[in-house]
Design a protein around this nucleic acid. Structure first.
Length: 431
RNA sequence: GUGACUGUAGCUCAGUUGGUUAGAGCACCGCGUUGUGGUCGCGGGGGUCGGGGGUUCGAAUCCCCUCAGUCACCCCA
């Protein structure tokens, strides 16, 4: 009987796993050097945890279950933020501030798979809590940008699109959108690029905007502004600079951190969910072809909502699927992401064969990644080919010589004779 | 949940208006080239042609259904 793997899941063969590790290693390395500490939580939570902030609408898109004869509903985690909020709320008073945490959870969502979206995926989360001011927002953006830079991505490849929920809300209200229609208006903004202009206008008018105001709505939210030009943004949409002072502070910090050229303001970015409270941002491939590479923003009410104190919070998530698409399309996949063996031991005579296993054990005990051939052939050409195929840095050739071996650098083709007892030392010095 | 497209070996694909026992390259396994690199040569395993039904003397090929995958919509935490 053949059982297929569940829809939208992946099997990780060695090559796939090496690639996955390449990404997660970089996520971890970059997080740590920016002063973030790794955390994790359960892979499933009580279903209620996901209802607190999102409501029931989201429930159909998650994998939920109940133990046989049990009474509690659980769900595989579709995101990490609720778990994080719970963890922070639980120990809010004893955690040193600010809280700088990162995590690399696998998440599950019961959606139909398509490009850039699977039912199980990895998502890097970086969150900074308990720090007032826009430096916090800027620092999370810095972490994301630094990561992308580390993998060879440039400002030409991607744009960090920044917006602010209150700014957009102000514009909408000034244009005459009623308070109770604000979320619908956000939603409309979010989808604007997928809609025909006519449909967009029709939907906008439903929210209470006349023809003239739809036009201004369009102008305000479809334009992009460079960093350092918030003044002209205000002028263009007729807004006092006072109303964008948080964005201005963020702007200053982005310049101070040297990442302003990666960023731009795009008031069409609002993010889907209701819990964001201030700055929101998404990272997109420049042409806009892919879905968002990362998304985040400020959620100052969430810790409070989960029973903790009121605490400022900002963070983002980046999924591995869209990231991999981007890196592949931009030709940014390194040739070797799997670990290279330090040395490949081969025997080209019967006497040499006797020495293989003791040498292998010795090399490995001394911390070297050492491999050998399971074949019985003594054909040196064939064995060297196998060594090269393994991507080993050195080959160690054992022959009839009593106490020495030939150690060959497979990259440079240099070959030297080394005493068998000295091989580990030689390799450590020359790797 | 809706729609479009695609299913032949692990991968990329051939396969004549329907006609013998379904093929190639790469990959994998083995051997040889009797001691220095991705060669070359020989050999091998592996496919109920996604599955089921139908038309036909005969189906990978034509028709219907179904399953899976991809992409788009919905949604996107």
């Amino acid at each position: 009987m053949k059982i297929e793997k569940p829809k939208g899941t992946r099997d990780f063969y060695p090559q796939d796993m090496a690639w996955q590790n390449y990404i997660t290693d970089a996520w971890r390395r970059v997080s740590i050097r920016h002063g973030f500490e790794e955390v994790d939580g359960p892979i499933f939570e009580k279903l209620d945890l996901y209802k607190v902030k999102s409501g029931d609408g989201i429930v159909s898109e998650l994998f939920s279950f109940r133990r046989e004869n049990g009474t509690t509903d659980f769900a595989l985690r579709p995101e990490f933020t609720p778990t994080l909020a719970r963890m922070v709320a639980d120990k809010a008073n004893s955690l040193p501030k600010p809280v700088k945490w990162f995590t690399i959870p696998n998440l599950c969502r019961a959606e139909r798979p398509q490009r850039g979206r699977l039912r199980e995926f990895l998502q890097w989360n970086v969150d900074l809590l308990g720090l007032e001011g826009e430096l916090a927002d800027a620092e999370t953006i810095l972490v994301a940008v630094d990561f992308l830079r580390e993998l060879g991505v440039t400002p030409e490849h991607v744009r960090v699109k920044i917006s602010h929920r209150d700014v957009v809300r102000n514009i909408l209200i000034k244009l005459g959108v009623a308070e109770e229609n604000i979320l619908d208006a956000f939603n409309l903004l979010d989808r604007r690029d997928k809609m025909e202009v006519e449909d967009f206008e029709k939907a906008a008018m439903k929210l209470g905007l006349d023809e003239h105001r739809v036009q201004r709505f369009q102008e305000a939210c479809r334009s992009r502004y460079r960093t350092g030009s918030l003044g002209s943004l205000c002028k263009a949409i007729g807004m006092p600079e006072e109303d964008v002072k948080e964005l201005q502070e963020l702007d200053d910090k982005l310049h101070a951190l040297g990442i302003a050229e990666w960023c731009e303001y795009d008031l069409g970015i609002v993010r889907g969910l209701a819990y964001y409270t201030g700055v929101v941002y998404e990272i997109h491939e420049s042409s806009g072809a892919e879905r968002a590479l990362a998304g985040g923003g400020r959620y100052d009410n969430l810790i409070n909502l989960f029973g903790g104190p009121k605490m400022p919070a900002v963070g983002f998530g980046m999924g591995d699927v869209v990231l991999s698409n981007l890196l592949r399309d931009k030709g940014l996949i390194p040739e070797n992401v799997a670990p290279r063996p330090d040395v490949y031991v081969i025997a080209v005579s019967d006497a040499g064969s006797e020495k293989v296993l003791p040498l292998i054990a010795d090399l490995r005990a001394k911390g070297l990644h050492a491999r050998f051939s399971y074949k019985t052939t003594k054909n040196m050409g064939r064995l060297l080919k196998e060594a090269v195929g393994s991507k080993a840095k050195f080959a160690c050739i054992l022959d009839d010589a009593e106490a020495t071996a030939q150690v060959k650098n497979l990259d440079t083709q240099e070959q030297v004779e080394v005493g068998i007892d000295e091989i580990a030392k030689y390799l450590h010095e020359n790797l």
